[in-house]
Amino acid sequence: MILVENLNKSFGKLHVLKDINLHVKPGEVVVIIGPSGSGKSTLLRCINYLEKPDSGNVYIDGEMIGKREVNGKLVDDSLKNINRLRSQIGMVFQKFNLFPHMTALGNVIEGPITVKKMPKEQAIEKGRYFLKKVGLADKEDSYPSQLSGGQQQRVAIARALAMEPKLMLFDEPTSALDPELVGEVLSVMLDLAKEGMTMVVVTHEMGFAREVADRVIFMNEGRIIEEGTPEQIFLNPQNERTKAFLSKIL
């Protein structure tokens, strides 16, 4: 579903991602952990091309994102193609990034109407379905400012789901939430995972990683240092850096 090959990304002199290789199979839930500044979020943002990699390729379902081959050479792909691929990748942000001038339902139907040109009635029907799915059927007329952080993040998840994406990326979805609101967001994500959604999740919620992840990846200083099943990583980490990180966080 996702294939990342030799990905490198620098911000100025700071080399954020170093030769990242990653393969995510359909239906797999991959959780990325690691200290802040290790490149987890940047990796996620390179997958849907919000950041342009300096080198290396990212394939979504076999299609390269951001570049295309012309006469054996790789050139920048058209914006139209990049947008088309992005519309198949759902993204949930740490700070929700809901559209404040639209109601909850307005947020959820925006993508289908504007990007997919879906008729409004159909989009509303679909939007209500996804709001119900995240447990917010009664909040469709509320503006984001009238919702709690946990509710806002759930609307954001519904907004991403309404595009019926092939995979979902979560960038620290619970980091900006009050502790008592974390559970409601995680339980929505858990349901999604159970339904077989392909997910890549950057998080500090180790409990979630343990319970839901098929695979846990530990990143440090721009590299994938260790990966394995949750049991392997949490109970029997091999790398010293992984051990040190886990001993602090668990």
Binding site: L50, R86, S87, I89, K95, F99, V115, A160
Partner: peptide, 18 residues
Amino acid sequence: IDKGQLEAAYSLGMSYAQ
């Protein structure tokens, strides 16, 4: 306007103009 708004729009597949 917060940069996250543009990113959220892009992540839905919107073009710059949209």
